[in-house]
Simulated assay, not measured.
Amino acid sequence: MGTVRRGDLVVAPFMWSDGVCDYCREGLNTSCEHGGFWGSVGYDGGQGEAVRVPFADGTLVGLPKDAASDDRLLTALLSLSDVMGTGHHAALGAGARAGATVAVVGDGAVGLCAVLAAKRLGAERIIALGRHLARTDIARRFGATDVVAERGDAAVEAVRELTRGQGAHAVVEAVGTEQSMRTAVDITRDGGTVGWVGVPHGSGTGIDLGVMFDRNIALRGGVAPVRAYIPELLPDVLDGTIDPSPVFDLTLGLEDVPAGYKAMDERTALKVLVAN
């Protein structure tokens, strides 16, 4: 018997997975033996009037039908398909917990959702590193106690000044450049952890294994298995405990998807919602 039926309102993660292989059962749906990405050769993309979902019962998560009548709630629920789950993955990987100081490198949608996730996990202090005022305003709304606008060495100095020279217990890296990774490591407290979800791009990783070895810094992260997190996060979105909807700051029709990608690339939009 299938778990989803015609007419259901559902959320779809950014990868499909069968839900029954060893990896899926262990909560690592992104390594599913039969999984894949939307738009792979031979499969539909995820943006269209209709999409065929491989392994729909293992991939899709049903939502309350009345959620469709609440635009804000529906937008918040959409974040579970990627950015909220990815921010949660980063915060968990970094070890965000009650009483901890968490720093988040990156003010994109994932970084902002990591701030929200860290707050949800009980972090006492959350330092958001970002330079765009509209985005850092959202970070504060999501629970950031401090904002650092500097980059590079200046950012490291600022974070260490805020933390009595020690750095943060848990650091989220949500950018993926060599500089951002170096900053993440440099602002991590000895014995702390970097939660890495920024897709790597550029000439190098910025990781100095000698530094990490000497200071007992751990590195965890990778592609977020958001399907595994949806059942945990969904109730908190439905009851308003967390509201990731502000990360969507531009709504376009399906015919304007290219303009949406351009807006995000040019940083005139944080995250685009496509409404048909």
Rank of each mutant, 00 (worst) to 15 (best):
R5P: 05
G7W: 09
D8A: 01
L9C: 01
F14C: 08
V20T: 14
C24Q: 07
R25Q: 14
G27W: 07
L28G: 04
S31M: 08
E33N: 05
H34T: 06
H34E: 01
F37M: 02
D44N: 03
G45C: 10
V51C: 03
R52V: 07
G62Q: 13
P64T: 03
K65L: 10
L74N: 00
T75H: 01
T75K: 02
G93A: 14
T101D: 04
V110H: 08
R125M: 01
H132L: 09
D137S: 11
A139N: 06
A139G: 08
A154W: 06
T163W: 13
R164P: 01
G165Y: 12
A170Y: 06
V171N: 03
E173I: 02
A174C: 07
V175S: 04
Q179N: 10
S180D: 06
R182D: 13
R182N: 12
R189V: 11
G202I: 04
V211F: 15
F213N: 12
R215Q: 08
I217K: 04
G221N: 11
I230E: 07
L234M: 14
V247G: 01
D249M: 01
G253R: 08
P258E: 03
D265S: 13
E266D: 13
T268I: 13
T268F: 08
L270T: 05
V274W: 04
A275T: 06
